[in-house]
């Protein structure tokens, strides 16, 4: 639920713009970075839990029975590309290149949808292989970690889609590129978290 506050930070237009800021940075950008710092500990704790419990399940299915590297590699690639797409979109937004912004932003949102879809499919697939949420320690810590990451992806996708909607209506001129920049920072953070999760959870766990 901490993610709720992220959305609020972004959408909060209250900053008294008549007031100067002490640092050469917008309040909202500082806030999202602060929030990202806080999120580091959120995911660190989830990852710690996963690692501390790795190999401690008393019964299967175990990671080696379940994971297949192919699909998740595709998802990883998509998420990485979406980070690239969103910097391109931001570049467009800042330079007032509306078409560039719309194109790349649409692609980013598509990537988000694809990744979230990949995860839903993966969960569904694992569930049918006999890995329910409470099946064992591995399943619970796996679903909790990747599920919360997935929730971040979903929220980020919704956020970017909202900005896309605004952009289509022409409400994201260059002076408001910050709206996109903040969402993009959040999106990149979600990406770097996956950069850790992917090898730690999928690749390392597959060792027999």
């Amino acid at each position: 639920m901490t993610t709720t506050t992220a959305a609020l930070d972004h959408h909060d237009h209250d900053d008294a713009h008549a007031h100067h800021t002490s640092l050469p940075i917008d309040n909202r950008k500082l806030a999202i970075w602060t929030f990202i710092g806080s999120e580091c500990l959120f995911f660190a704790t989830l990852i710690s839990t996963y690692l501390v419990y790795a190999g401690q399940s008393v019964k299967g299915p175990f990671p080696t029975d379940i994971f297949s590297v192919g699909l998740v590699t595709a998802g990883t690639a998509v998420l990485l590309f979406s980070s690239f797409f969103v910097v391109m979109a931001l570049d467009g937004a800042q330079k007032g290149d509306r078409k560039k912004m719309l194109t790349w932003l649409s692609l980013t949102v598509l990537c988000g949808v694809f990744f979230a879809g990949m995860q839903v499919y993966e969960f569904w697939h694992f569930y049918h292989l006999g890995l329910g949420y409470s099946t064992n320690l591995f399943s619970a810590s796996f679903y909790t970690l990747t599920g919360f990451h997935g929730a971040h992806v979903a929220l980020g996708t919704l956020w970017l889609a909202t900005i896309l909607k605004d952009a289509i209506k022409g409400r994201v001129p260059p002076k408001k590129a910050l709206n996109l920049e903040i969402a993009a920072l959040y999106w990149h953070f979600v990406d770097v978290v996956w950069i850790i999760i992917f090898p730690v959870v999928y690749l390392m766990q597959m060792r027999s």
Binding site: M1, T2, S38, E39, C40, L41, F42, A44, T45, L46, T49, Y53, Y133, S134, N136, L137, A140, S141, T144, F148
Partner: peptide, 20 residues
């Protein structure tokens, strides 16, 4: 964030039957 995660794990144990 650390206590939030701990509470989520405990909540999962209590409500969703996990075994953290």
């Amino acid at each position: 964030p650390v206590i939030t995660v701990a509470l989520i794990l405990l909540m999962a144990d209590r409500l969703f039957g996990s075994g953290f």
